[in-house]
Amino acid sequence: MGEPSLTRRVTVVNTQGLHARPADLFVRVANRFAARIEVANGRECVDGKSILGILTLAAEQGTQLVLGATGHDAHDALDALARLIEQGFVTDEAEHATEGTG
């Protein structure tokens, strides 16, 4: 009631998509905020604080997601989560290095 409810559209940029580690990171960041977080891919909408939820989206590179946040810190939450996705989950690069694949 009276709490901000915001959405933001983001595109998955990292080549591996939202696999286990990015999903873990996303959920960790989401859980720092009080706001309720939802993530939708056009087919379904999942709890942004659940790793099983995020993995269910199977979001590949290029997938458009809509992030939704409801709560007093909704704006900050969306900023942090959108940045994470748009910067390609910084740690994803480390995995490329260990795999030796491009």
Binding site: Q16, L18, H19, I51, L52, L55, T56, A58, E60
Partner: peptide, 20 residues
């Protein structure tokens, strides 16, 4: 296989969907 990130994602999707 290293060149099939989509398959890996879809396997994770299936596992997590069922485990919910």
């Amino acid at each position: 296989p290293p060149d099939r990130p989509g398959d890996h994602l879809r396997a994770l999707e299936n596992i997590s969907r069922q485990l919910r």
